[in-house]
Amino acid sequence: MPTDLALKELILRQLPVPRTPEDIRDDTDLLNDLAMDSLALANLLADLEEEFGVDIPASEETLSLLTRYDKFQSYVAARARTAPPEDDA
């Protein structure tokens, strides 16, 4: 399961404009508050799947998870694998 900081760093590295972990609070809307565009989102979903084994389909329903960081974190924590993958990224 990723730590809170690891998950925040994974989110932050997708952003076109640099931010810090402190900019992400429990109620942060990842898409709107962090100005995450579709490319950043595509990279976020790819990295989540590859690094934590969490597959979030890019549908409207599942993307609602991104409206609050705490909701997103709980979702990832419940599904993350323990060991990192070796091959593809």
Partner: peptide, 28 residues
């Protein structure tokens, strides 16, 4: 590892490629 390589690729591509050109997926 592919994840580490992808991080290095993103770092290397910064300033050399537009964001949309940088690979979202990398496989070794």
């Amino acid at each position: 590892g592919a994840a580490e390589l992808k991080r290095q690729i993103r770092e290397f591509c910064r300033g050399k490629l537009e964001r949309h050109q940088v690979p979202v997926y990398v496989a070794v």
